[in-house]
């Protein structure tokens, strides 16, 4: 039994084990976030509706990535990989949209 504990400790040393308490807190935060975003969508805020919905979605996604996926406790390399993915995705969206938006401006 003690040997098993020791082994478990060794594994813990190799990488961080997040405690279930954190997971429960994150779960509650995500559920609250969902309730909040649905509630907000029922109120007519005009221009702000999509922004609030996407902001809450991003907050929820960030919680999942940081805690459920453990990026908060991971190496810089993992953080960089996640960052590279987001950066490339934003490049694709923003530069494509830039073309579509500026098409409406007409010629010089």
């Amino acid at each position: 039994m003690s040997e098993q504990n020791e082994k478990a400790k060794h594994d813990e040393h190799a990488h961080h084990i997040v405690s279930p308490k954190v997971y429960v807190v994150i779960l509650i935060a995500l559920l609250v976030g969902t309730a909040l975003t649905v509630w907000a969508s029922f109120i007519d805020l005009g221009f702000w509706n999509p922004i609030i919905a996407l902001a809450i979605a991003t907050a929820k996604a960030t919680l999942v990535v940081l805690f459920f996926m453990g990026v908060k406790y991971s190496t810089k390399l993992t953080k960089l990989t996640v960052g590279a993915g987001i950066f490339t995705f934003l490049t694709l969206v923003s530069m494509t949209l830039a073309d579509y938006i500026s098409r409406a401006w007409g010629s010089w």
Partner: peptide
Amino acid sequence: GISNYAVLV
């Protein structure tokens, strides 16, 4: 047929 501004950039 992309926008002139996109062509420039």
